[in-house]
Structure formats: structure tokens, C-alpha cells
Design a protein around this nucleic acid. Structure first.
Length: 352
DNA sequence: CTGTCAGTAAACAATT
DNA sequence: CAATTGTTTACTGACA
């Protein structure tokens, strides 16, 4: 594929504590985030080590874990830091991913337990990352460099330039389409709809989109549908789809032949998001589910957040300390669920 | 310093 | 003829 931006900006320091593979700062942030989403974090297990005293962590000073500011994500908001749930404005207006219950769109039922029944089973989430194969290949795309000149910290409005390359944006747009194919005009529309920045952006971005479609091997032109008018439909090359996903999730996944089956009927509003999520998780469940979740996490908090989850980190987040549940099977599903929960995407619509 | 990559601008042809 | 679409080239800046 035409590589999307790879490791530019340097990878953030990974949690390299000998005794605690997860940076304390991230643990605190996870705790805050979980709390901010209405849950409480009582117990966290990292690679077998149980942390249940979050007061200490909460109160601990940062010095030992204070890492460098993360330039790779600086302009995309506060990626790399799990923000409180109300920081969506910093996040390139991707709140739609959260607001519309993305998780529901992912088919999580394959491994036995239905997602709708599972939710946070007994208020416990498990996040487990294992090194199956060292993933040095494609990395999470760094945010564009251009807007990085602007100071990232001040409250960015929703018209901040998204931290995603045009290839990512196009990819998301096409994946979100019921037929997994869009004419350029619809790609424009999707981008504008989800990234208000482009509503008032200089006209040149459309040129960039077309330029990218033409130049990027990931995208293919297919014969225009009758009645479509000018132009063709653009699709994601199945050969490169995995690479595009990988660029988001930084997790190796098996090369899959693209099997386009039963395009979802177009429904309204949030269904688009569901479609996107499902498409991202399609057609290969399991690893792709994880990727989909990782993608959402990366999209919400910025790609660098994934770098802060060290390999083999094993998290158990529970609401009640007394809960000691074990799970069997569905590891990937739980991982996806946990990541989505960390991303603030609920497993079920909040009861109203 | 060099190569790579992404973003941008622009020119141009083809199509509607 | 104008607007849109698609291709191509060139340049710039950031980064490894």
C-alpha cells in the first residue's frame, strides 16, 4: 500500500516499568476515564499484577512516569492521554463515534455470549494484549504535520483539523458506505459530515482527496453505476484493506480476501457508524474485532494511545472489588469490548 | 544530508 | 461553456 504515515514523530515511551508494564500515568488516566463515564475503577490487573489501591495512584506524583510530551499526537487533540469524557471537542469532532453507540454495530456474538447480554459482565472488563507476532510493520498513523505548528493544548474547537491523513479519511468514508464504494462527491460529503473542519476549510482539500484517490494504491476506481452521473465509484482495494486497518490499530492481522457480503441496508443517523464499525470488523472476526476497537480507540484518543498499552498488558477493570470472575473464550471480543469501553463507547445505550 | 511520505497547489484532459 | 472528475507534476515540510 502506499504507506500511511508511519512512525513519524517517534513512538511515545512505552510502559517499560519492570514491575508495572503500564505507565502509572496511563493507569491513572484509565481510572479517571472510567470514573468519568459513570463507573468506578476498583481493581486493575496488569499482566497478572493486581492494583487495587487507586487512591495511591491517583495521588502519586507524576515524576517517575512523566513522559515526554507526545508530539505525534499533539495537534490531533490530546491523543495519548485518555481524556475525560467531555473532551470530545479536542478530538476532531469524532464524538459521533461515541455518541452513537458504535459497539452495537460490531457483531460480537460469534463466540458464544451475546454482546447485548454481556455488556460489562458483572462490571468487569478485561483487556489483554499479547505479543503474537512482533508488530513492527505498519504503525498507527501520526497526525498531519502541518497543523502541528499550532499549539495543541488550548481548547481546540470542533473545527480543528482532524489528525488523520486523507487516506484514512477516505478509507473511513468508503468503509462506512453500505456498498463500500463511493463517488468522490459522497466522499467529500462524508468527510464534511464527520469532520466539520472541512466545512470551512480552503477548497484545496478536495483536490487533495482526489489526488489521494488517484495516487494511493489503496483505492481503486470501479465502473460507475448507471445514473450516477459524472465520475466513478471508489473502493478500497481488498489487498490493502488490512494495511489500512493496521495503520490504525498497529496490530498485525491476517491478510484476508475481501468478501463483500450482504451490504447493510441504509438506515439513518447512527447506523452509519454501526456500519463503519461493522465494516471495520468485517469480514474477519476475532483479530479484526480487536482492530476495530483499537481503531476506535485510536480515532478517539489519537493513535499514540495504543503505544501506551504495552504488549502483554493484561488489564482487569472492575467496578466491584469483590467480583472475581473468570472468562472463557472470546478473548478478542472482550478485548474489543474493553477497548471500546475505554474509548467511552458503551456496550449498550445508556438507559434513559 | 538524504530519502520517504503526506499535504498542497496547479495544470490539464475528459466527461457531463 | 462551466463545473466536476481524474491524472499528473512539482514543491514544501516533517521526520527517520
Amino acid at each position: 500500500m502506499a504507506p500511511m504515515r508511519g512512525e513519524r514523530g517517534g513512538s511515545p515511551a512505552r510502559g517499560a516499568r519492570a514491575s508495572l508494564p503500564l505507565p502509572r500515568r496511563l493507569i491513572r488516566q484509565i481510572a479517571r476515564h472510567v470514573a468519568s463515564s459513570g463507573r468506578s475503577l476498583r481493581r486493575l490487573e496488569v499482566s497478572g499484577r493486581v492494583i487495587d489501591n487507586f487512591d495511591d495512584i491517583e495521588d502519586a506524583s507524576d515524576e517517575s512516569d512523566m513522559e515526554q510530551p507526545q508530539p505525534a499526537v499533539a495537534c490531533g487533540g490530546n491523543a495519548g492521554n485518555l481524556p475525560p469524557a467531555d473532551h470530545d471537542d479536542d478530538l476532531t469532532s469524532l464524538s459521533w463515534l461515541q455518541d452513537r453507540n458504535l459497539l452495537r454495530g460490531i457483531n460480537l456474538t460469534k463466540s458464544g455470549v451475546d454482546m447485548e447480554d454481556t455488556k460489562m459482565v458483572d462490571n468487569q472488563i478485561i483487556v489483554k494484549r499479547e505479543i503474537k507476532t512482533p508488530p513492527p510493520v505498519a504503525r498507527v498513523p501520526s497526525p498531519p504535520r502541518t497543523p502541528c505548528k499550532a499549539p495543541p493544548s488550548p481548547p481546540a474547537n470542533t473545527h480543528t483539523k482532524p489528525p488523520y491523513s486523507f487516506s484514512c479519511l477516505i478509507f473511513m468514508a468508503i468503509e462506512a458506505a453500505p456498498a463500500r464504494a463511493l463517488p468522490v462527491k459522497e466522499i467529500y460529503a462524508w468527510i464534511v459530515r464527520h469532520f466539520p473542519y472541512f466545512r470551512h476549510a480552503p477548497q484545496g482539500w478536495k483536490n487533495s482527496v482526489r489526488h489521494n484517490l488517484s495516487l494511493n494504491k489503496c483505492f481503486h476506481k470501479v465502473a460507475a453505476a448507471p445514473g450516477l452521473g459524472k465520475g466513478s465509484l471508489w473502493t478500497v482495494d481488498p489487498q490493502h484493506r488490512a494495511s489500512l486497518l493496521q495503520a490504525f490499530g498497529r496490530q498485525p492481522i491476517p491478510a484476508v480476501g475481501d468478501v463483500v457480503e450482504n451490504p447493510e441496508p441504509v438506515q439513518e443517523n447512527g447506523t452509519r457508524v454501526s456500519l463503519l464499525a461493522r465494516r471495520l470488523a468485517d469480514p474477519e472476526p476475532g483479530a479484526d474485532e480487536y482492530l476495530a476497537a483499537a481503531t476506535v480507540l485510536a480515532m478517539k484518543y489519537g493513535p499514540a494511545v495504543l503505544d501506551q498499552l504495552p504488549p502483554a498488558a493484561h488489564l482487569v477493570i472492575s467496578r466491584c472489588a469483590r467480583d472475581e470472575h473468570s472468562y472463557s473464550g472470546g478473548e478478542e471480543r472482550r478485548t474489543a469490548e474493553a477497548l471500546l469501553n475505554l474509548a467511552g463507547v458503551r456496550s449498550e445505550p445508556a438507559p434513559s
